[in-house]
Design a protein around this nucleic acid. Sequence first.
RNA 1: GCCGGGAUGGCGGAAUUGGUAGACGCGCCAGACUCAAAAUCUGGUAGUGGUGACACUGUGAGAGUUCGAUUCUCUCUUCCGGUACCA
Length: 828
Amino acid sequence: MSYNIANLPPYEPQTIEAEAQAYWNENRSFEVDESSDRPKFYCLSMFPYPSGSLHVGHVRNYTIGDVISRYQRMLGKNVLQPIGWDAFGLPAENAAIAHQIPPAVWTDKNIAQMKQQLTSLGLGYDWSRELRTCDPDYYRWEQWLFLQLYKKGLAYRKEAIVNWDPIDQTVLANEQVVNGCGWRSGAPVERRAITQWFLKITAYADELLNDLDKLSGWPDQVRTMQRNWIGRSEGVSVLFALQDNPGEKIEVFTSRADTLFGVTYLAIAPEHPLAKQAASNNPALQAFIEETQHSSVSEAVRATTEKKGMATGLYAINPLSGRSVPVWVANYVLMSYGTGAVMAVPAHDTRDFEFATQYHLPIDWVIQPEATDTITTNTAFTEKGILVNSGDFSGLTSDNAIAQITEALDSTAQGKRCLQYRLRDWGISRQRYWGTPIPMIHCKDCGMVPVPEADLPVILPEAVDFQGIQSPLKQDLTFLQVTCPNCQQPAQRETDTFDTFMESSWYYARFASPDSHTRMLDDRADYWTPVDQYIGGIEHAVLHLLYARFLHKVLRDENLVSSDEPFTALLTQGMVLKDGSKMSKSKGNTVNPQALINQYGADTVRLFVMFAAPPEQSLEWSDAGVEGAYRFLKRVWQAVTTHVASLAHYPNWQTFLHQAHTEKQKALRYQLHHTIQKVTQDIGERKTFNTAIATIMELLNHWYKFTTETPQDYALSQEVLSAVVLMLSPIVPHITHALWLQLGHTNAIIDTPWPSVDSEALKQDALQWVIQINGKYRGRMTLPAQITEDEIKQAVLQEASLQQHIRNKTIRQWIFVPNKLINLVITP
RNA sequence: GCCGGGAUGGCGGAAUUGGUAGACGCGCCAGACUCAAAAUCUGGUAGUGGUGACACUGUGAGAGUUCGAUUCUCUCUUCCGGUACCA
């Protein structure tokens, strides 16, 4: 059959994408409420920081979310997919300094541009719920929540160490410290202790740890990272008394009490009070401590810098052995972790071993492997074993010794069984302008006084002159000067702002009731939360996702939500790379998605991003791959338009729908329903959109080889193409919107259910078996589906092509993998 | 340093529970159409040997378990993410 292809409508993405988007707008297709009787499905991609323009990572993130949302909608769910802006943050301040533009103005401009770009991608958002975290309507509730935490004693102040730029007189983020120096001034950074606000996330440590077991919809990888981050360890805190001043004790924590006889020195952090005390009459030590204060507070930097230490001249008494050991100051001990002091067991800890070797401190072996009595002395032995040289405890296993030593310390009040967490309380103060003001007032007489709830929000002034030296809030007297709510005397506002992770820790819940003006969240939040599917970058595996879990539990305890966890299922997407490395402006390897959308259309960009790699893996950008995606869409377009154009040749085709009679029809219909089955599993369960697309491509290749000659053939063609268009519709919603109508369907594809599998079509008369001999592939055999194992054996033994391998050999074993594979184990 | 993850043709990737390694796409090669080119269509494409059927080798490196390992275990190399003030 031939058609005049020149007369068929060409694929014009710009036209059909505008039409589809206009249809969704007019019908408010993505605006949802709670009145539906369908089950709810809340799908959320991590909201963007408005950095300026969309990058490919955004396109990937939001396309994945959109595909899942549209698929769930086709399954009959009441789907919420909202979007907003994580609008506070450091880049706005940097832009303000560089371009003399207020952070608020810069942010607004970026949001406008990125919103336009998101819209052009055809993402199915409920824009009526759009929020931005820099709006007082949003952050007032964050201030309110902070006040509730303060009332409960879960928000408190303490000293913490920051990077200080002595030239710019400003606190630096770790990212702003380059090779130990401030990125703008170039001055060596100093560590400085300042008083800051903290949230007591450690009060929820056990729940945050235990509830990870409930999160079966999360990747194991992320749960493991969070488990390790929380780092619960059981052990004992041991008190070492100072030799010259037994009233003063150094407290250390260990999970390896069995190694206590191997302690040969104590190490304390440079910021430890005892270090300062010892340095007061020791200029060399003073200089050493001073030197350690000139590096970033970042753990990655500290852990890779050379380990250095100096003796304090103090000695402490091991409470168990009575032995006197020196006390050292060491740069590898963190004041912010535990007590800021550790007992060092060089023989059984790698880091202590290196330090002891470097400074010629004693290394005493007290644990030996169970199997042997030999000890290698060129490396630390960190496993558990049998105790030696440990007084009455010698001969015990490590586990028994831990129990008995802990008991011995406990009974003499020289130690205490305790739990230790690696997790630290969440420091939420930032000495920055562009953030949520912390709703507190400093009063000379009353101390810290919370802003009364009736006075919220504390509004961040937006018209400011921003120089980047110190927060403009400190000069803004109308902001700064306030009357103490307690004593009515003049007082000052807190000028620190919140860590921006605060805003991103509860926005998902606010989307459910974005216009609630009397409460932080109303009942609608409990209808929509928890989020059924959350999607975002793997780089958020710990911090953001842990803080959000924490605040969700806080919201629960405020009776604002009833669930224990915010995100039922989590998909962590990989990075987008080009030429093997991360896209970045500095490398000059960025790709502008907008240019591609203009050139090929949104569907092509969406298809490429979903096809190039499974979502959890990193994605290698390829311009040629984009071209290939465009080519495929043109093929789909051509397939449908030529099919539709031939309609007149096959009257009454509808009589023959959903049937197959000839062999070629059965084969194509098998392929169709096999494809539906696989694509349903790939999109719905495995979330491997790349293999779903590949399978649809295969089906279309089969369709191209299928010649349409009868009304029956035409009916099957219609069934195949309708299913292809339906299965593609979550991924490429615009072209499928148009093709669905061309196929003669009268409803919009967005409101059409997902296709279902006809199990009748999957029945096969014969199956193909793989034949192996000694595990090696030796050919294939097609055998009837209904066949016994003995009949298979007979057929295999008679197969001519196998004779050269089995002649004169003894078959020792037959291995059957049902309907798939037969392996003959023969003597060689 | 520590925690987590990855490595498969020329390239992106597939192989879902230990069972045909390389689906699908890109690129390349050949052919068709064209005055020509582009676009499109058809066929081929891991390596080596062979006209061919086929044989051997092959999933970062090395060992192990198994009838059978890309998949499981151990050791190592290397790249990526996080490391608490980038988001």
